[in-house]
Design a protein around this nucleic acid. Structure first.
Lengths: 138, 138
DNA sequence: TACGCTAATGCAACATTGTTGCAAAATATT
DNA sequence: AATATTTTGCAACAATGTTGCATTAGCGTA
């Protein structure tokens, strides 16, 4: 399956800039999720810290990437599947964080089990974060 | 059911200090989870910021409170049930965060459903965070 | 292709959050 | 009550995130 960076940006009515191209490319290449710091390191001094913040924010708003709640409360981002559209994320998959190598995976094939809530409670979003050892480290 | 603050501290071999008593009391009284900022506000200028950080850290280590991973990646803490012992938390319950009032609940009665992982993956901890509207706001 | 308009970037300054070392104070031990 | 041990508060620092504004780059149009 192909992922066209330019196409993705155009589809979301974003102007094609160096930083957006480069940062989106990092996500396409990365197997796991990226933290802000990862991006800052991998892009060198090419972009300002502020630009990275704003780019990530824009991508999240447009549904290009989504944030991942982690057990250690660090912020991480990962590419959304095509099904995600602006303002409406469909990332109902399980996230896995390896205690050893720190890699965060989106387990796209594993859907979130249904959680029955007390009466009166209404769920709009369910996040499941599993931590442990991944395939490589086990 | 009674919760003795002094007893809890003694049981965990912690010396009884003003800050520990006061902060633990906040947790006992609070129905939901507390963020660092909540504690800082509710305790006024009584304690130093650093003391609060260190106290929370100590409580987590001793298994008196546990952290809650939230969808917005803010750090929150809540009291552990008696079953929690030092270094080993048994907080395998679902956490619920209300989008309206912001209250975070520990749904102690709802256990975490089993998640089947890809082969090679080994889970040590599973966190489930549901967000939506709670009983009061619905 | 050049022009002007709009949007994005970089910079500076600032706010918030969290960490560390060390002297002073409070707690525990005898 | 005296001493040993812990905990606290302060100061300084590091990391993370935000905002305003001038400059620059991308885009549509002629």
């Amino acid at each position: 399956m192909m992922y066209s960076i330019i196409e993705t940006l155009k589809k979301n009515q974003l102007s094609i800039t160096d930083s957006r191209k480069k940062i989106l490319e990092l996500f396409v290449r990365a197997k796991g999720a990226l933290a802000h710091a990862d991006i800052e390191n991998q892009s060198g001094t090419e972009f300002d810290r502020v630009t990275i913040y704003r780019t990530l924010q824009t991508f999240v708003e447009k549904g290009i990437i989504h944030t991942i709640p982690t057990a250690d409360n660090s912020v991480r981002y990962a590419l959304c599947k095509d099904a995600c559209s602006e303002g409406h994320h469909h990332d109902n998959h399980v996230h896995f964080m390896c205690d050893d190598c720190g890699t965060t995976y989106c387990l796209d094939n594993i859907t979130i089990p249904n959680v029955s809530l007390p009466s009166g409670f209404l769920a709009t979003q369910t996040d499941v974060v599993v931590s442990g050892k991944c395939g490589k480290c086990n």
